[in-house]
Simulated assay, not measured.
Amino acid sequence: MRTEQHPDLTDPRIGAPFFSTWRVGSPERQAETVEAIARTWERRPWPANGLLGYHVYAGHDGSTLMHYSQWSGEQAYEAFVKTHRQERVDEIDTAVPGIERVGLGRYRRYRSRERAVGDERVPGLVVTVRVDFEAGERRGEWVDLVLKALGDDPEGHAGLVSAHFHLSTDGGHVLNYAEWESAEAYDRALAAPSGEAWERVRTYPGVVGFAGSRYAHVLGLLPG
């Protein structure tokens, strides 16, 4: 069934969160692809007990779609690939030819700044930030620094609803999935003066690059 609710990234049943990106080329094709995904999935039974939810986001760049799937474990995903994935891909590609599938990232959630108790804000913006590291660097320590900086700066990040830090299973990067009240709130946080704590985050040894993207949640699919 479809849902407009944003996913719960802290669900303890999630053993294998996956993120992937498709490049479709235009806002019109973004909308067409989202509807093709919804039709393709809704006309079939839910494919696996190990799939807890599947969500799609439209990039503010007008060209990309991000996919976030919540799996109980990687074995459940591999079984889906063998038995159910290709027929879905074929139907979507028939409806919207020329989709470029950029890549699939496999992760484990490390830590989160969770939504405060009683906070019922609906996120108006989802931001993902990929942080690349040199081989062997301590990604967890960097995340710990970020969460401490957030905790020490509540006013500067008042528009932040939650932030969820994922470590890639290949050991190379961190992906932060952050929910913001609005794009304006995120822009205010970016423009605010930064202190010593954020300088330590930016200059942490072993960090080799940052890449951020802005999204709107446009489709949620859950088992009926």
Rank of each mutant, 00 (worst) to 15 (best):
N49I: 00
V122N: 03
A163M: 10
H60T: 08
V102Q: 05
G124K: 11
L52H: 02
F19P: 04
G53C: 11
A163I: 01
P45G: 15
F18V: 12
L221M: 08
T64A: 13
A76P: 06
V218M: 00
A185M: 02
S26V: 15
T33Q: 09
E42Q: 10
P27G: 11
V96F: 09
G53I: 05
E42Y: 02
Y204E: 09
I14P: 05
E196D: 15
S194G: 10
L9R: 09
G62M: 04
A48G: 07
A38Q: 01
W142F: 07
L51K: 05
E74V: 09
A216Q: 15
G62S: 07
A116T: 05
W198L: 12
R202Y: 09
S20F: 14
I37V: 10
H84G: 03
T33E: 02
A192V: 09
L51E: 05
V117A: 15
A31V: 11
I92H: 01
R139T: 03
G140F: 13
E181A: 01
L222I: 02
E120N: 10
T40W: 15
G195H: 15
G105K: 04
E78A: 02
A197H: 05
T64H: 14
E100Q: 11
H6D: 08
G195C: 13
R101A: 03
A185H: 00
G98E: 01
A31N: 14
A178T: 15
A197S: 12
P7W: 03
A183Q: 03
A149M: 14
R106T: 12
R202E: 08
A116P: 06
Y107D: 02
F80H: 06
R200C: 12
A185W: 00
A158M: 03
L65G: 01
Y54G: 00
P97D: 00
W142R: 02
R111N: 06
W198R: 13
G172A: 11
V117G: 05
G15A: 08
E181I: 00
Y215K: 11
E35P: 00
T128R: 11
D152F: 09
G220Y: 02
R200A: 14
D132P: 03
V127S: 07
A135I: 05
F165D: 07
